[in-house]
Amino acid sequence: MGTIKLKNIRTYSYHGCLVEEGKIGSDYAINLEIKTDLRKSCLSDNLKDTVDYVLLNTIVVEEMDVRSHLLEHVGHRIITRIFKEIPSVSRIFLGVSKLNPPIGGDVEAVTIEMEEYRN
């Protein structure tokens, strides 16, 4: 087994329960870690034998473009889509952070973290 990590994917998205968040938007940072078998690609040096991190990034960015009220909801969509589109992924650890959240305090970020295993 092996791990592929995408660290600090940055998006400007429109998630949140407040009406203003859907209009104004906010900065987000997403961290994604997947487990997969890297033995074949270690020997073949061929992209078709591994998980393409360009595809992982594309999935994250596209799902972040779809408005959700809760970070948990968008996180679940990202995880579901990765499992659906990439059968070789066995585990996903995902963190979605809203930077400078509008919560009436000096808070750098609010983050949800989710971990799921393929059934």
Rank of each mutant, 00 (worst) to 15 (best):
F83W: 13
M1S: 10
D27L: 07
E115C: 08
D45E: 14
F93C: 13
R67Y: 07
Y117A: 07
V89R: 01
K23R: 14
I30A: 08
E115K: 06
M1P: 05
I82C: 09
T36D: 09
I9Q: 05
H15I: 07
L32T: 00
I103V: 15
M114E: 08
N57F: 12
R91P: 04
D65I: 03
E108H: 14
L32D: 00
D106P: 04
N46G: 09
P101A: 10
Y12N: 09
D65W: 03
C17W: 10
Y117K: 10
V107S: 09
R10T: 11
L99E: 04
T36Q: 08
V61L: 09
R91C: 13
F83P: 02
G22Q: 08
A109D: 08
I24L: 15
Y12P: 02
T36H: 13
K35V: 09
K48N: 15
R118L: 00
E85T: 06
T80Q: 15
S44A: 08
E20T: 05
E116Q: 10
S26M: 02
K5G: 03
F93G: 07
V66L: 13
Y28C: 03
D52W: 07
R67W: 03
P87R: 07
V19E: 15
I82N: 02
E20N: 08
T3W: 11
V107A: 08
D49F: 01
M64L: 08
Y53S: 02
D27Y: 11
Y53K: 02
M114K: 06
L32Q: 02
E33L: 03
K35T: 10
E62P: 05
R67M: 12
V89Q: 00
L6D: 01
I24W: 09
L32K: 01
R118V: 03
K84F: 12
R77L: 11
T50A: 08
M1W: 07
N57M: 12
I30K: 04
V107F: 08
G105H: 12
V19Y: 12
G16M: 03
I9G: 03
I78R: 00
V61W: 06
S97I: 08
H76C: 11
L18V: 11
L43A: 14
